Simulated assay, not measured.
Amino acid sequence: MNTSNETVNHEEPDAGRRTLLKMTGVGVAALGVASVAGAPAFAQGNAEWDKVFPKSSKVDHEKVSFQNRYGITLVGDLYLPKNRSTGTLPAIVVGGPFGAVKEQSSGLYAQTMAERGFITIAFDPSYTGESSGEPRNVASPDINTEDFSAAVDFIGLRPEVDRERIGVIGVCGWGGMALNAVAVDKRVKAVVASTMYDMTRVMSKGYNDSVTLEQRTQALEQMSSQRWADAEKGTPAYQTPYNVLKGGEAQFLVDYHDYYSKPRGYHKRAVNSGNAWTQTTPLSFMNMPILTYIKEISPRPVLFIHGEKAHSLYFAETAYAAAAEPKELVIIPGANHTDLYDKVDVIPFDKLQQFFDQHLSV
């Protein structure tokens, strides 16, 4: 394990955000939120470049769509090395962060790994971005785990791909989903969780497991009442978008804002870019710990990558401790949570290539 001897300062939200009611209401928008306006698009072929990162001249790009096991149509970006051989290549499925879209961090990871010789796909999770599913902007630990396996289905059927050499990368909240997916999907040969969140843990227990039973009960009472309101109206209510800083926020919330609400990472379809989840989205996360069977990833390898200064580091440390060998935790000195979203001089792409070259070898 590669780590640092410095003590990591896990910043806690302010007192108002420490309650689960706040965290699963307005506060969860800070973890990720997707556009409620308009129907999803299903463009095919080489559409206009609409990513927050530059297009690489070293890869070919295709807009693709496929269905998951629940019949939801997912839209993705497929990246292929431009100077690829006529034989088959290893592939990597990329998802995340929680509430982001494929035009952001996952697309950057996918395109960069395609430059390094892998066929990759970044996708919009069910109910968000350009993918289908109604109502809009709702998350599910089960359905979103399935989204990874559906992407494996799709990419493994491509004639350019060796289906025996498929890996997965999950970023932020989709890091936990990726681990959950690979625990049950034995087709995947190796998995990376980058700057990961365990969304079921943070929604049910709050940051640093600080939520009390009273606060949890209050949150569930509020969301249960909201169900009556939604049922009577026939449409779900949405959280307040988190896109304006009022001052006094914890540093990690400022970091999220600096990515999602500024040109660096803003995308109109992304949940965190001024849109919102449904108010009852946290319900399915409240009593479903997704990392229960993390040991069953073994004997396939798992690599955790996290920033030394990330408020979320404890998620990776806990998951690493629970995982079985072979496993590795790489901590990036000085990096915060969102540095691993898009800073190509911080994200250890050489390490990622080495990991997948080794474990997706012929």
Results as ranks from 00 to 15, higher is better:
residue 148 F to N: 13
residue 148 F to D: 10
residue 150 A to N: 08
residue 153 D to Y: 09
residue 154 F to G: 14
residue 156 G to Y: 09
residue 156 G to M: 04
residue 159 P to L: 01
residue 160 E to K: 02
residue 162 D to M: 07
residue 162 D to L: 08
residue 164 E to N: 15
residue 165 R to M: 07
residue 167 G to K: 01
residue 167 G to R: 02
residue 168 V to T: 02
residue 169 I to G: 10
residue 174 W to D: 09
residue 174 W to E: 10
residue 175 G to E: 11
residue 175 G to H: 05
residue 176 G to L: 09
residue 176 G to Y: 12
residue 179 L to A: 13
residue 184 V to C: 01
residue 184 V to N: 13
residue 186 K to Q: 10
residue 187 R to H: 13
residue 189 K to Y: 07
residue 192 V to T: 15
residue 192 V to D: 01
residue 194 S to K: 05
residue 194 S to F: 04
residue 195 T to P: 07
residue 197 Y to W: 10
residue 198 D to E: 11
residue 202 V to D: 12
residue 202 V to K: 03
residue 204 S to E: 11
residue 208 N to P: 04
residue 209 D to F: 00
residue 211 V to N: 05
residue 211 V to D: 10
residue 211 V to L: 01
residue 218 Q to Y: 02
residue 219 A to W: 06
residue 223 M to V: 10
residue 224 S to N: 05
residue 225 S to P: 02
residue 225 S to D: 13
residue 226 Q to G: 10
residue 226 Q to C: 04
residue 229 A to Q: 07
residue 231 A to P: 02
residue 235 T to S: 15
residue 235 T to G: 11
residue 235 T to H: 11
residue 237 A to R: 03
residue 238 Y to P: 08
residue 239 Q to D: 07
residue 239 Q to C: 13
residue 240 T to E: 10
residue 243 N to L: 03
residue 243 N to W: 05
residue 244 V to D: 04
residue 248 G to D: 08
residue 249 E to G: 12
residue 251 Q to N: 06
residue 253 L to Q: 14
residue 253 L to W: 08
residue 255 D to Y: 03
residue 257 H to W: 15
residue 257 H to Q: 09
residue 260 Y to K: 03
residue 264 R to D: 04
residue 268 K to A: 14
residue 268 K to H: 07
residue 271 V to D: 10
residue 273 S to A: 15
residue 274 G to C: 09
residue 274 G to S: 11
residue 275 N to P: 15
residue 278 T to P: 04
residue 282 P to Q: 00
residue 283 L to V: 15
residue 284 S to M: 02
